[in-house]
Amino acid sequence: MQLIEAAARRFAADLAALWPEAERHGPLGLAVSGGADSLALLLISHAALPGRIAVASIDHGLRPEAAAEVALVERVAAQRGIPFAALGVRLAPGNTQARAREARYAALARWARGAGLGAVATAHHADDQAETLLMRLARGSGLSGLAGVRARGLIPDSEVPLLRPLLGWRRSELAAIVAAAGLVPVDDPSNHDPSFDRARMRAALAEVPWLDPLALAASAQHLAEAWAALEWYAELDWHEMVLREESTEGAPCYAYCANAPRIIGIETILRILRALGGHASRAEAARAWDRLWAGQNASLGGVLAVPSAEKVEKVGAVMRVWRFRPEPPRRAPS
């Protein structure tokens, strides 16, 4: 009892930092899989916010055991009088883990809106964050990727707040809370399958005790703050240094007075592309920035960018000016 009471006080403080009382306009929804991490989230939230939570569990249709795992979560919720929803999803073709994540968040957003929830929380913790940071370092990710999972954001393609209040908690702490409650969590076999990057990284971390997951998670948080600052600067760059024009053909055109550091310019290029109905990855936008900086045309996401140098009246100096417009239709071969 003392363990859960102490955990509830700690959780309440962590949650308040992400989701102040004044911003709460509905119950907190919890995504609970039946694993130790998410069961701990359920137990702690129930103690900290009695009568103000709801639980959902998702069957991705990938494993026959999933239905029983959803039923376990339903029993745990029912024993505590917590509203519960079982959500089934179907995956689009492609990368299984990526498609499962997309389907899961889409289902959670629909549930949150239908149930009038104020936010949805997941059980990502410090060990998850450490694994994510190291995996992305190994892939050469940029700053946005190295920032890891964010403590607060929005469920993709929705306005539903997404909270991760356990990023300062260790996996072992959460497991101890579940054990103290007498619950036996499910164990997804993919957590130990070496064909998955995360499982391999988890095993490697376990063999290197001097790597502190809490310290790695703290570094990811610092990187997330740095990324937020860059996003703020990129927003300023968009408003101050990008002008909408009309091309000679009457199509929309954007002139970008490119004077910001490369990492900011890449974000501004992506925003211009979106404004023109195009799409590209950051890596593609980075290659376009390099070509434009070198004085070469760039084509990406259905948009053509042409560099020039001209005097910009609002600045009073000659600057690089890059113009972006939809690419002309390709001529059919005669």
Rank of each mutant, 00 (worst) to 15 (best):
G145Q: 05
C253G: 07
V303I: 15
G168F: 02
P156V: 14
P64K: 13
L87K: 03
G35T: 06
A16Q: 10
W19G: 08
H279Y: 11
A258E: 02
P20Y: 07
I264H: 01
E313K: 11
I266K: 06
P83C: 09
W289Q: 14
G140P: 07
I53D: 00
A215Y: 07
L117P: 03
E245Q: 10
A180W: 03
L236G: 03
E21K: 09
D157G: 09
D157Y: 11
A22T: 12
L30P: 01
S45V: 12
E21I: 13
P329M: 03
T248F: 01
L230F: 10
G94I: 13
A48H: 01
S219Q: 04
E310F: 14
E159W: 07
A180Y: 05
L134E: 02
L276S: 01
L137K: 04
W293T: 15
N259T: 15
L134D: 03
W210F: 13
A260P: 00
A109D: 00
S334R: 08
A147S: 08
E225T: 14
A251I: 14
D157L: 14
R320D: 02
A16C: 07
L62V: 14
S38M: 05
A7E: 05
S334G: 11
N95K: 12
A6L: 08
D37I: 04
Q296L: 12
P307V: 11
I155Y: 01
L236D: 00
A22H: 05
A204P: 01
A12P: 00
P333A: 15
L143C: 10
A85C: 09
A199K: 05
A121N: 06
A218Y: 02
R110P: 01
E245G: 06
R80H: 14
P329S: 12
E69S: 13
R262K: 15
R330L: 13
A130N: 12
A204D: 00
E65M: 11
G182M: 13
E207N: 05
A203K: 07
V303M: 04
P185S: 06
G81L: 05
A121P: 01
D187V: 15
V76N: 02
A13G: 12
L49N: 01
V70P: 00
R170Q: 10
V186F: 08
W210D: 07
G118I: 04
A305T: 14
A175L: 08
A109E: 00
L154K: 05
A180G: 07
A138M: 11
P261N: 04
W322V: 15
L62F: 07
D193I: 15
H279L: 11
A298M: 09
A68R: 12
A56D: 02
A103G: 08
R63L: 14
G153Y: 03
A16Y: 05
L174K: 09
V208I: 15
V318K: 05
I155F: 00
A8I: 12
A98G: 09
A280P: 05
G250C: 11
P252A: 07
G182Y: 09
V208N: 00
A85N: 02
A56K: 10
A215C: 07
A217R: 08
V208K: 04
L300S: 05
D237M: 04
A206H: 02
V312I: 12
H60C: 08
L91C: 10
A103E: 00
P189K: 11
E310I: 15
P27A: 15
A260L: 13
A100G: 02
A119C: 09
A234R: 06
A224T: 10
A112T: 10
A176M: 10
